[in-house]
Design a protein around this nucleic acid. Structure first.
Lengths: 119, 119
DNA sequence: CCCATATATGAATTACAATTCATATAAACA
DNA sequence: TGTTTATATGAATTGTAATTCATATATGGG
């Protein structure tokens, strides 16, 4: 069951704030390392480290042009995955907030979702 | 940009091998803590800790029945997300292997994906 | 050839997360 | 009420990952 480990590694690779920012930028188009560092206001070496991590998971690939190295996503579906995941996460968090408000109004919470009904 | 942090936290929460296993089990239906610990051959306290982490991200919810506490996914789309993500990850890794084999045959690799063509 | 620019790398540090262990809580039942 | 079963919790430990810093590599231009 190495697949499980690979999938977990893949998710963790995306699930780091700086790398996620990088991926969202690359979803719009390719960028060179310096650009990314500048836009994200992070050290260049940090960006390089993160790009290497992303490359090891085959999430990004690079192309050299003169001194500059441009990175892009290896697959457009990655952009969609990130968007879909964001949307779902937002819904889940919203749901959580509603539950908190609901409980604050003095309800005990039967446990059977009036707010988050079973799927 | 708290959304970014939330999304990253969400992905990391899923991207831990034991939690991912739990989620894959819960995708099939609800389970109590003891069951999960037994099936996964892990300590009960460990499973509880992981379930708490998942609950904090609103990925799972619980229902108590006598002494037992049953957990399930808060949303069926989570199961699909995990499946889709696994499929994509597998493709990306396969792609990576092919690149390695390709380079082993003595090619220099122009950098412009004969194997992973641009999307 | 030397210099400036762009990126990568490795070691060291720091921060964070997973796991274990001991124990607390709580429900059912004799 | 005392005991068993099921789960949760917190502290301590261990492991892993992010960040920084110094430096190496490599490209293009004067």
């Amino acid at each position: 069951m190495a697949v499980l480990e690979d999938q977990a590694r893949f998710l963790r690779c995306i699930g780091e704030p700086t790398r996620l920012q990088i991926l969202k930028l690359l979803a719009e188009g390719e960028r060179c390392v310096g650009d990314l560092a500048c836009v994200l206001n992070k050290e260049q070496s940090l960006i390089s480290h993160h790009l290497r991590a992303l490359k090891e998971c085959n999430i990004v690939k690079e192309r050299q042009e003169a001194q500059k190295v441009y990175y892009k996503l290896t697959d457009a579906r990655l952009a969609r995955l990130i968007i879909d995941c964001e949307a779902l996460m937002k819904e889940l968090l919203l749901c959580k907030c509603q539950e908190v408000n609901y409980e604050r109004k003095g309800n005990q919470g039967s446990g059977e979702g009036e707010i988050c009904p079973d799927s």
